[in-house]
Write a protein that binds this DNA or RNA. Structure first.
Length: 257
DNA sequence: ATGGTGGCACCGCCA
């Protein structure tokens, strides 16, 4: 089973490169975040014409998530119950024995803002989601843009960014509470140390070649998944050099399922 | 170098 995650920052703009990547890499499930399109406008036919199943939960202009897969999901969940809002940041599906949860965690915009508080509450609601629906003993994958670089190794110049958005102790704590439910960071099972990033500063020229980045796109597995995970790697998006705002794919290979 | 880019909306907002 090959699993992958990708922040598209507009699925309509990235559609050709995503279809190329799917054909070349043949994942069983790809989770996409920031599709930025309302469901009626989602380019579903393009995926289906290429032989993929696709499920999506989006909105106009921002947020939005999708799951592309080789086989059709057996169960589907859309949205995270929070403040009675129509959440468009979570989509989850069961493929046989394996559940895959794909999330786009709120960015938070600015430390101390209402959006920052919302981000922290969103993490709390996500932990409740996992608690109420799954057991850490069953095979579950959680993937997506977590919008937090949780350790000094996960962002360039940690000292400079500590206390700022994406690298704040309150975010570390909120993410740790979710991870503490029973998740293993699959990338860190295989790679340690600094410099492994999935997203680069988009307003600094040459940020990609200077590796001024963040590791904010993660794939987690419960123990049954982590035990069978044989590789997890970062695969730079095809047009990354031209478009530093592109995130990259994170790919995990798991035996079985 | 306290700058700068990109997508989508709309005449700014968000990342």
């Amino acid at each position: 089973m090959r699993l992958a995650t990708y922040n598209a920052n507009s699925i309509r703009v990235r559609l050709p490169s995503v279809l190329d990547w799917l054909a070349a890499n043949q994942p069983d499930v790809l989770g996409i975040q920031e599709t930025k399109v309302d469901d009626p406008e989602f380019p579903a036919d393009a995926f289906r014409d290429a032989g993929w199943h696709v499920e999506f939960h989006g909105q106009k202009a921002r947020n939005g998530v999708a799951l592309v897969s080789k086989s059709a999901p057996d169960e589907l969940v859309k949205g995270l119950a929070l403040d009675g809002e129509d959440d468009r940041r979570l989509i989850a599906a069961r493929y046989g024995d394996l559940w895959v949860v794909n999330t786009y965690v709120p960015n938070g915009t600015q430390v101390g803002s209402d959006k920052f508080e919302y981000k922290l509450r969103w993490f709390d609601a996500l932990r409740s989601f996992f608690e109420s629906r799954f057991s850490p003993d069953q095979p579950v994958v959680w993937m997506g843009d977590v919008n937090v670089a949780p350790t000094p190794d996960d962002v360039f110049d940690s000292e400079k960014h500590l206390g700022g958005i994406g690298h704040h102790p309150a975010e570390f704590e909120a993410l740790a509470k979710v991870v503490g439910w029973g998740w293993t960071d699959l990338f860190r099972k295989f790679h340690q140390g600094p410099g492994h990033y999935t997203f680069w500063e988009f307003v600094i020229r040459g940020s990609v070649s200077k590796n001024l980045g963040w590791r904010i796109d993660h794939i987690y597995g419960t123990r049954p998944v982590a035990e069978r995970c044989v590789d997890c790697r970062i695969d730079k998006a095809p047009r990354l050099q031209e478009r530093p705002s592109d995130h990259t794919y994170v790919v995990a290979d798991v035996e079985g399922f």
